[in-house]
Design a binder for these strands. Sequence first.
DNA 1: ACATGTTTGTTAGTAAAGCGTACGAACAAA
DNA 2: TTTGTTCGTACGCTTTACTAACAAACATGT
Lengths: 383, 383
Amino acid sequence: MSAPEAQRSARPRALRPSAKVLPEHARSHNRSLVLQHLYRGGLQSRADLARETGLTRVTVSDLVAELIADGLVVETGQREEGRPGKPAILLDVNRDGHRIIGIDLSDTGVFRGAVLDIDGRLVTRMEAETDGAAGDEVAAVAVQLVRDLVAAADRPILGVGIGSPGIVDLAGRVLSAPNLEWSDLALQSIVEKTIGLPVLVANDANAAALAEHSFGAAVGDLMLIRVGRGVGAGLILGGMPVFGSRFAAGELGHVVVGTDGGELCVCGKHGCLETWLSVPRLRAGLAAASDDADRDAVLRRAGERLGIALAPVVGALNLDEVVISGPVELLDGPLTQAAIETFRARTMAEFHGRLTVRMSDLGQDIVMRGAAAMVLSGRLGVS
Amino acid sequence: MSAPEAQRSARPRALRPSAKVLPEHARSHNRSLVLQHLYRGGLQSRADLARETGLTRVTVSDLVAELIADGLVVETGQREEGRPGKPAILLDVNRDGHRIIGIDLSDTGVFRGAVLDIDGRLVTRMEAETDGAAGDEVAAVAVQLVRDLVAAADRPILGVGIGSPGIVDLAGRVLSAPNLEWSDLALQSIVEKTIGLPVLVANDANAAALAEHSFGAAVGDLMLIRVGRGVGAGLILGGMPVFGSRFAAGELGHVVVGTDGGELCVCGKHGCLETWLSVPRLRAGLAAASDDADRDAVLRRAGERLGIALAPVVGALNLDEVVISGPVELLDGPLTQAAIETFRARTMAEFHGRLTVRMSDLGQDIVMRGAAAMVLSGRLGVS
DNA sequence: ACATGTTTGTTAGTAAAGCGTACGAACAAA
DNA sequence: TTTGTTCGTACGCTTTACTAACAAACATGT
């Protein structure tokens, strides 16, 4: 036991000051809570919702009345069950009452967009060629695509979600997107002003991760690896996307993998994850391969590198799931298999016994559906 | 544009159902908010707090009255300023009115504990030898240490924080701590029942990370690497600790680093981070070294491995800071320097320009102070 | 057939939380 | 002394969710 000693002032310094909470905020939280249960659980009565949420029947009734007035919830008739008591009036989210616009700007040469319903199903699909445009010009193409989709929607539109390549901040500014030659482009506010609807912009990999979380088979904390021209990742921890302090979370493409050199990358380093795993490099490797065994080896080598890069991340975050998204013919098979094996060989299996590594089954629409999930989450508090 | 197509049901499955929010929860949030501002900002008047929090002077007055009644806040006289108007009554957290017990179970052979004040300064320090005990026996040593510290405290005790090695769940159960031969030990509830005070238990690396966040020089998202008998890490993202889905976040010690083999680890793999970086291995390496240059090389090699392991994690999370905690004579110097260099060589500097890698300056007390921070955060909502 | 019990949804009244307005107190400057 | 400013508090109001009570609608047992 020692006497109190001189220590430097222990008072912590500034942080984000958090915000006050008013009763109305609590109300909107509970409103979202009710909507969320209804969204997931399907047909339920007010009494069911009260039991599930822990709120009173009275309160639920009140919230539901508000949701019905807003057109978000509808009564769908009575429950036909041989139970005693007054039959329940079933409620459901007004799944066909609204539309969402989802945009994917991440592909090369073409912007994809769609009108989606509340459940994230594509209703109308559109594309817009970018014809090698860049900067403001290509931004105008995106805006026009949104405009066309808004015109094509046959229901009120909840909002517009956009998945963009590059670094995107929380206000929907694209801080840097080299392929489109965007820097500090206030995409969200531009589209919002033009269209007059709520707009949300996020990085494409983050959007994809959200899609997997909301509409895919994902269960808990997950990382989504997007393999395309480059390699990017999106992270969902505890149901919330991880953005990183400079909004650059998931920028894994230019991390060097392994300690044995590697090919030269456009960034000037050797052995970046992209040099092992990007689609162009994979295709080139396959084209140069002489036979099937050789092709297999190319894919397995890429998968091994992915496993090597993932091991520390999964260890540090104790993830449940790693999902890979990209061209199925390249990624599904030896590549994923090798990633799993490498990963298992390089981490403690007992901590990560439940980790699954798999391909996404959302296909090419993953970013558009993720963009829709952003709108659902941002506007309705539903995920 | 294509017609609506058949897609598999898009409805997401079960997630954490979140919880309802009642007005009283909002109140306690605002109460914590006021306390937080006071804790960080020092002497302030009610009107100051109202301006900073956005709440009304009336509401702040009400909350402050409650905090004064609870003994957490005191009036410390009037402000002496040549300003017009009624002079302000200054408030401050009752910094000397309560104590916190902080416990560190992570060291080999000895448990450390301390009575701390609200600002995280050590007031009374104690130690308890474990004498090679294990299981329930060594748990009893910990309980006795807490009891002694409670008896030594000269003020009301806010709570007990414990940093334990191993995997600890959110309820303070130590799921697995091989060194102490604990598995599924409900440490928090055991101590709580014995002592009759609020108890919080967390992993030692997580506690250390919290200490760095609360009392150290840390600014934003950070990862704390704890180098001792093994290697562990704690993560703070957005001010919140990351636990991982199986509560095993930060278990980096047994991730294989590099692609060029490495020494055999106790876990059976070759080249785990622990085989490069643990204190025993470092000391052995230094002892075997012939001259200073050789010793430097040993430390640099270890630092390089740390950098290799960190690169994907920092890339994936876009961290602000990596803090290293452990024996200064080993870690501070060539090792840290090599880690920084390796790291910079393996990632995109432009994304991580603001990343800093440094030693913690909280020394040996880091876990105890982190344990105190857990109590501050859990009991007062202050961080 | 009829009473009984159950479940549902609503009405009425209550407690808590924070707001806006207004007021007295205490001070500086003119 | 007067004026203007700032601080802290008293009062009344709105919002929110709660409890209690009730009517409606149904199944079941006698």
